[in-house]
Design a protein around this nucleic acid. Structure first.
Lengths: 159, 159
DNA sequence: GCGGCAATACTCGGATAACAACTGTCCGAGTAAGTAAGG
DNA sequence: CCTTACTTACTCGGACAGTTGTTATCCGAGTATTGCCGC
């Protein structure tokens, strides 16, 4: 089992967008250079985030990506499932019903015990990620770094 | 992210070994036919479980695999990490320290906030799997099926 | 000076290759059982 | 009848291809800006 690296890239970009002043779109080129990531590959993930309704993309000059919702209404789980897909890593193949020792249908009224355990673990994992929002992550970024980023992208008229 | 199907196969086989009377080795051929699985592929996973010290393999006629420890001392997490590897699905690439917006070393005294969240979720997932033992899973198998399996492999002199 | 228009440059979006991991398979080394011969 | 050595068949173990998913990349469609021309 290996989590896509695009998830980490997407999370960092979403976090940076949450740091930047609202209403200031950041193009993918800026995002890629800011973190030293391959731009063309990052595009795929930003696109996934846009399709999921987390980001809003605007084309043309001075365009780019910005958060579609307030940072405190976007959880880490949202970003992760938008990029990696919402499918559970474990899918029960109903092994118990196959082969010479197959269980009969009337013995399978309850779901497979193994699948139940795996689903429970997956839920615990999801809950742990759902409990953290982008806004909370921003607060954990060192203030010196936050100020630097804000000065870099800032220039927002509202300030 | 996708969990190897070998994990499910290994779990079912370990569960069946826990159902069978202790001291009666089951060859991989029997295990494969019992669940309708490809024998040669299953061998790879049983080998991994053996290397991890969960199973004990005995060669020669009337040989096979048996649990190396009591069923209540083997957790689902043990089986899973033996087959899938103990590596975390998320590995921090330290993106924050790369690119034009790289954070300085003195700003990285604390671990990356994103990595912290991911590690926490992974721990929650592991704890959920560590809490369940093979013995507990056996008790959730329908009694009719347990009896059938025991009669199939049983013939243990202790009965 | 102002409005409209066209050219421009910048943005995102989907379709296309290269790589890696998982899946599936095979044959060889080793061992315990079974058998037959000898005592 | 018991012991012993051998033959046999069955087991696991590691090395070898096929297929799916992830990683990486490119070029085309669309749009807001910008400069220019006409009024």
């Amino acid at each position: 089992m290996k989590l896509s690296e695009g998830v980490e890239q997407g999370l960092h970009c979403a976090l940076l967008l949450a740091e930047a002043p609202a209403g200031v779109p950041l193009p993918r080129r800026v995002l890629a250079e800011h973190y030293g990531l391959p731009e063309a590959y990052l595009a795929k993930h930003l696109q996934a985030l846009t399709r999921a309704g987390l980001l809003r993309a605007t084309p043309g000059p001075s365009g780019g990506f910005r958060l579609a919702r307030p940072a405190d209404e976007i959880t880490v789980l949202d970003v992760l499932e938008a990029i990696d897909g919402p499918a559970s890593p474990f899918v029960c193949q109903e092994i118990r019903q196959q082969g010479t020792g197959a269980a009969r249908p009337e013995e399978c009224t309850r779901p497979c015990a193994i699948a139940t355990v795996m689903v429970g673990a997956h839920q615990a994992w999801r809950e742990s990620l759902r409990a953290v929002t982008l806004d909370q992550l921003v607060k954990r970024v060192p203030q010196t770094l936050r100020k630097r980023n804000r000065a870099k992208f800032g220039s927002d008229p509202a300030a």
